[in-house]
Amino acid sequence: MSSIITPDICDAHPDVQVLDPIFVSFGGREAFCGPIRTVKCFEDNSLVKQAVGEPGEGAVLVVDAGGSHRCAMLGDMLAEQAVDNGWAGVVMYGCVRDVDVLAETDLGVHALGAHPRKSEKRGEGLRDIPVTFAGVTVEPGQWLYADNNGIVVAKERLPLDT
């Protein structure tokens, strides 16, 4: 994979969208990229579990969890499942848990914060729809690039120098 350095991406591709700097990196993979798949849910991670249980094929799961700080929407077990199924990363507009394990997991994980409480499982939410948070509307099929500098979204895969 090419080097992912979001400042360089912004310099070379000024039309990329940059998510507001509200995310913390929790995953063991500091830089990641891939085509976007989305989930929209609120305090119910049923569809997150469903998504990471499917082949990721190098994609990034972008979850609009409503910005909730009342429970975690991803933990160590779902992160391990995501790795096993070939996901590159998860961007969670919400919280995660088991952060010490996430830091050792070969998965990019950016979230708003950590919370020890698990979410509900009611089977609610939507998949593969445009979601809007952090000043950007993210659509399935766009490309997401993330590192410790931030998160950028492009309409399509960008040619990056290796």
Score class of each variant (00 low, 15 high):
residue 1 M to A: 15
residue 1 M to Q: 14
residue 1 M to R: 14
residue 1 M to K: 14
residue 2 S to C: 14
residue 3 S to P: 02
residue 3 S to Y: 11
residue 4 I to D: 09
residue 4 I to Q: 10
residue 4 I to P: 09
residue 5 I to C: 10
residue 9 I to R: 01
residue 9 I to K: 04
residue 9 I to Q: 05
residue 10 C to H: 02
residue 11 D to T: 14
residue 11 D to S: 10
residue 11 D to A: 14
residue 14 P to D: 05
residue 14 P to Q: 05
residue 15 D to N: 08
residue 16 V to N: 03
residue 19 L to T: 03
residue 20 D to I: 03
residue 20 D to K: 08
residue 21 P to Y: 10
residue 23 F to A: 05
residue 23 F to Y: 10
residue 25 S to E: 11
residue 26 F to A: 02
residue 27 G to I: 08
residue 29 R to N: 04
residue 31 A to I: 06
residue 32 F to G: 00
residue 34 G to V: 07
residue 34 G to C: 06
residue 35 P to M: 12
residue 36 I to L: 04
residue 38 T to V: 06
residue 38 T to N: 05
residue 40 K to T: 11
residue 40 K to H: 12
residue 41 C to T: 15
residue 45 N to Y: 11
residue 46 S to H: 08
residue 50 Q to L: 13
residue 50 Q to N: 13
residue 50 Q to R: 13
residue 53 G to N: 00
residue 54 E to M: 15
residue 58 G to Y: 09
residue 60 V to I: 15
residue 61 L to A: 02
residue 62 V to E: 01
residue 63 V to H: 05
residue 64 D to R: 04
residue 64 D to M: 06
residue 65 A to P: 03
residue 66 G to P: 09
residue 66 G to I: 03
residue 67 G to H: 00
residue 68 S to W: 06
residue 70 R to M: 15
residue 70 R to Y: 12
residue 71 C to E: 07
residue 73 M to P: 02
residue 75 G to S: 05
residue 83 V to D: 11
residue 84 D to R: 14
residue 86 G to C: 10
residue 86 G to H: 06
residue 88 A to N: 10
residue 89 G to P: 03
residue 90 V to T: 03
residue 92 M to L: 11
residue 92 M to A: 04
residue 93 Y to K: 07
residue 93 Y to R: 08
residue 96 V to F: 02
residue 96 V to I: 11
residue 97 R to K: 09
residue 98 D to V: 07
residue 101 V to M: 10
residue 102 L to P: 06
residue 102 L to Y: 00
residue 103 A to T: 11
residue 106 D to A: 13
residue 106 D to V: 08
residue 107 L to S: 02
residue 108 G to F: 00
residue 110 H to L: 10
residue 114 A to Q: 11
residue 115 H to A: 00
residue 115 H to G: 00
residue 120 E to A: 15
residue 123 G to E: 14
residue 123 G to S: 12
residue 128 D to G: 09
residue 128 D to H: 12
residue 129 I to D: 11
residue 130 P to E: 08
residue 130 P to S: 14
residue 130 P to T: 09
residue 130 P to G: 12
residue 131 V to I: 13
residue 131 V to R: 01
residue 133 F to E: 00
residue 135 G to P: 02
residue 136 V to F: 05
residue 137 T to R: 09
residue 139 E to K: 15
residue 140 P to Y: 05
residue 140 P to I: 04
residue 143 W to N: 04
residue 146 A to W: 04
residue 146 A to S: 04
residue 149 N to F: 07
residue 153 V to M: 09
residue 157 R to Y: 01
residue 158 L to C: 12
residue 159 P to Q: 08
residue 159 P to G: 07
residue 162 T to P: 09
residue 162 T to G: 14
residue 162 T to D: 15
